[in-house]
Simulated scan of single mutants.
Amino acid sequence: MTPTIPTRQPCPPGACICERERLVEIQGADLRILYLTRQEEKRLLDRLESLSSLSDLEHMQRRMFEQLGLRVTIVPSLNEVRSMRGIGINIDELPGLCRKTRQAIPAAIRRGLEKRPEIAYELLNANDLLRDA
């Protein structure tokens, strides 16, 4: 008997916009996002909060895309960046991704950047925003 991979419990009807039912109905759809259980989500958020460098953040972005099909883009604002709020963290639309998870991932990344501001400086420098400083 082969063990089955646990999947995330469905959200209560009307409480979420994840469109999980539509994802399950589509034949050949990418179901990787359903493998992000609540326990695995907590591990992911803890990992995002404990980032050590910009390369670590980029590595996590690649791993989230490879394992979950979740594309996270992090770009600083074209205007002045005075706080972590000035850094835009966007998650592409993905059927099956819970609304709470869609909000929790950027919040965890921001907390990680607040703990290690040098990562935010590296991010700004990588996008050539500190060229005049």
Rank of each mutant, 00 (worst) to 15 (best):
T2L: 12
T4W: 03
I5G: 02
P6K: 04
P6C: 08
P6T: 08
R8L: 15
R8T: 13
R8C: 15
Q9W: 00
Q9T: 11
A15M: 07
I17Q: 14
I17D: 14
C18A: 08
R20H: 15
R20I: 11
R20G: 09
E21V: 10
R22T: 06
E25V: 14
I26M: 11
A29H: 04
L31E: 10
R32I: 13
L36P: 03
R38C: 05
E41N: 15
K42S: 10
R43W: 11
R43Y: 01
L44M: 13
L45S: 00
D46A: 12
R47E: 06
R47M: 04
S50V: 00
S52V: 14
S53P: 02
L54C: 02
L57Y: 01
M64A: 14
R71P: 02
T73E: 13
V75H: 02
N79E: 11
E80K: 11
R82G: 12
S83A: 10
M84F: 14
R85C: 05
I87N: 06
G88A: 12
N90E: 13
E93K: 09
P95V: 00
G96R: 05
C98D: 13
A104W: 04
I105F: 09
A108G: 04
I109L: 01
I109P: 04
R110V: 09
R110Y: 03
R111W: 00
G112I: 05
E114K: 13
K115W: 05
R116Q: 15
E118L: 06
E118H: 06
Y121I: 10
L123D: 06
N125L: 05
N127G: 08
D128L: 15
D128W: 10
L129V: 14
A133V: 12
